[in-house]
Simulated assay, not measured.
Amino acid sequence: MDTSMGSKVAERILQLRLAKKMTQEQLAERADIDASVISRIERGSRSNIRLDTLEKIVTALGVDYASIFSFPDSNHVKTRIDSKLDLITDQETLAAIEKLVDLLAVPRK
């Protein structure tokens, strides 16, 4: 498994795109880039993504840079949780998770 930053970002773009139920063509259209660019990025054949291209993809996905750089294989539990939460788009589910976090965040005596 390739663990380079480029391949991690490519996999993350794919995860976020699928979570948003978008095709490569839809993402490309929203990002105003060619669909072949999205395809090459996601396949890993284009591991050095230009910053302006990454900015367009981030904007088109409606996420922030932290979401793009939150990897599920991180050594940090909080980062792994964040990466999974970014994939949930259902607002009711997110509200339920928020309530659970609120309950867990209450200081213990």
Rank of each mutant, 00 (worst) to 15 (best):
M1T: 07
D2V: 08
D2P: 05
D2I: 02
T3M: 10
S4G: 09
M5R: 06
M5P: 02
G6H: 03
G6E: 07
G6N: 03
S7W: 06
S7Y: 09
K8M: 11
K8L: 15
E11D: 06
E11G: 07
E11N: 06
R12G: 04
I13V: 05
I13D: 04
L14F: 01
L14V: 01
Q15S: 14
Q15H: 11
Q15V: 09
Q15C: 10
R17I: 11
L18G: 00
L18S: 01
L18C: 04
L18V: 01
A19H: 10
A19K: 10
K20T: 00
K20D: 02
K21E: 12
K21G: 05
M22K: 04
T23A: 11
T23D: 03
Q24W: 01
E25K: 00
E25G: 02
L27T: 05
L27M: 04
A28W: 01
E29W: 05
E29F: 12
R30M: 13
R30A: 15
A31L: 06
D32L: 08
D32T: 08
D32P: 01
D32I: 12
I33G: 00
I33N: 02
D34T: 13
D34C: 10
V37Y: 06
I38F: 03
I38W: 03
I38A: 06
S39K: 07
S39M: 07
R40L: 08
I41C: 11
I41L: 10
I41E: 10
I41K: 07
E42T: 10
E42V: 08
G44Q: 01
G44R: 00
S45D: 09
S45L: 04
N48C: 08
N48W: 01
I49A: 04
I49M: 08
R50N: 06
T53P: 00
T53E: 09
L54N: 00
L54P: 00
E55H: 04
E55D: 07
E55L: 00
K56T: 13
K56C: 11
I57P: 05
I57W: 03
I57Q: 05
T59H: 08
T59F: 06
A60G: 01
G62N: 12
G62S: 11
V63I: 13
V63A: 02
D64F: 04
D64T: 09
Y65G: 05
A66E: 15
A66V: 15
A66G: 12
S67H: 10
S67W: 07
F69A: 00
F69Q: 01
S70E: 11
S70H: 05
F71K: 02
P72R: 04
D73S: 11
D73K: 08
N75H: 12
H76L: 12
V77A: 14
V77L: 15
V77D: 14
T79Q: 13
R80H: 12
D82C: 08
D82S: 14
K84I: 13
K84C: 12
L85D: 10
D86W: 09
D86R: 09
L87H: 12
L87A: 13
Q91P: 12
Q91K: 14
E92M: 07
T93N: 06
L94Q: 10
L94C: 07
L94K: 13
A95E: 13
I97R: 04
K99G: 09
K99D: 15
L100S: 11
V101Q: 09
D102L: 13
L103M: 08
L103S: 09
L104V: 15
L104W: 12
V106F: 03
V106W: 02
P107Y: 10
P107H: 13
P107K: 15
P107M: 13
K109I: 14
